[in-house]
Simulated assay, not measured.
Amino acid sequence: MTVTIYDVAREAGVSMATVSRVVNNNPNVKPQTRKKVFEAIERLGYRPNAVARGLASKKTTTVGVVIPDISNSIFAEVARGIEDIANMYHYNIILCNSDKRKEKEIRVVNTLLEKQVDGLLFMGGVVTDDHLQAFKTASVPVVLCATADEKKTMPSVDIDHEGAAFDAVNELIREGHRDIAMITGTLQDPANGYARYQGYKRALEEAGIQVREQFVRVGNYRYESGMEAAKYFLEQEQRPTAIFSATDEMAIGAIHAIQDQGLRVPEDVSVISIDNIRMASMVRPQLTTVAQPMYDIGAVSMRLLTKLMNKDAVEQSQVVLPHEIIRRKSTRSSV
């Protein structure tokens, strides 16, 4: 049978209130009494009922986290930042994978809210009106993590995706490249797709370089789509001297496709991307990329959420963290 707080109190010869104070780390308990209670807990194998405690305090000390793809190392790094700060502030995490599908995202959000989480961190792609409706009807704070809604109405932590892409393409332009292709994500994705494409386009236009339709391919963020896009570029009558990829994983696919064709990176084709996943420094040649601080995005998101949950003052609810170019071996001057 389930061991209850009453069983522990009887075993230790104290009141249930005393057991409750010990379990909740109340300092107003004598050391010898605390020792007796802990010994009784160990003998009986008692585990506090988190649901009952949550009902009594109206807090579960639990935060729900919606993650688009748990197998993607980018989101794993964000989750690590979230968990470290959550542990610091004594919150538990419920992590849910949404496969970046709208219906599943909203279903998971509602499920987490039904479980009485104290707050919610949402990582995803497009934040639609349906998402916003689910967030705004929630009775707990919600923070968008590594994404933002178009009208900036929700608390969020992210980078300037357009600015990151602009800087990456300008790096190639400064090296003398003018035939620059892009492997983009879906343009329905406001960050990794549309915003990064807009940064690519703006960099070319400001440098007086024409944006050519045959130099833009849409990928799905995966290695294989990067390979397919690079093969397409290399089949063009005028092939690019450089490729900008919206993500590192697609960039690594592009590097391997170039090498499979008997060409060299960066001697024949330079490659640059955004993210700075661990594989970026493992691939050969090592990948030049714009690093977004994924751990910091997770950590800052969780810290912002703790402030909102505790009703602390928040100076800035839309946080944009800095990015930086990590120069490695996959780019070089074309002149």
Rank of each mutant, 00 (worst) to 15 (best):
E105I: 11
I272Y: 03
N49M: 04
G193Q: 05
E315K: 13
D160P: 01
A291P: 02
D179I: 06
G193D: 03
V8M: 15
L172R: 12
K58L: 11
C96S: 05
N25V: 02
E213I: 05
Q292L: 10
N310Q: 15
K102E: 14
I106Q: 11
S15M: 02
S20Y: 07
M309Q: 08
C145F: 06
R178A: 09
E162S: 08
E77K: 14
V63M: 08
G13M: 10
I93R: 01
T247C: 09
F166Y: 15
V108M: 13
E213G: 09
A52H: 10
R80W: 08
S156D: 04
R178E: 13
H256F: 02
I74E: 10
D248G: 00
I173A: 09
L263P: 00
S73R: 10
L132D: 04
L113C: 00
I243D: 02
S57W: 11
A251Y: 03
I326E: 15
G125P: 03
S139Y: 09
T4R: 00
I258W: 00
H323T: 15
I183T: 09
M302S: 12
G13T: 10
E39G: 12
V127E: 09
V78G: 06
R212D: 10
R284D: 09
Y91M: 07
A246C: 00
K201M: 09
D167L: 11
E42D: 13
S225F: 03
D69T: 09
V3N: 13
L113H: 02
P141V: 07
A76W: 05
A50G: 13
I106C: 12
D260L: 02
Q286M: 01
F215M: 14
E249D: 13
G119W: 04
A246G: 02
N24F: 06
Y232S: 14
I5W: 00
I277L: 06
P155F: 11
V157E: 12
K36Q: 14
L204K: 03
T147G: 10
D99C: 08
R278E: 12
I258A: 00
V14G: 11
D158G: 05
N87S: 15
R80M: 12
P27K: 09
N72P: 02
I272T: 04
Q261M: 10
P31C: 05
F166T: 03
V65Q: 07
T128R: 08
D275M: 02
E205Q: 12
D179P: 05
R53W: 12
L121Q: 08
R332A: 15
A181W: 04
E267T: 11
V127I: 15
A280N: 01
F38M: 15
L121T: 07
D296I: 03
V19S: 04
K311F: 06
D275R: 02
P141Y: 06
L120H: 03
T111V: 00
V14F: 07
I173S: 10
L305N: 12
D160C: 08
D149K: 08
D248V: 02
A134C: 01
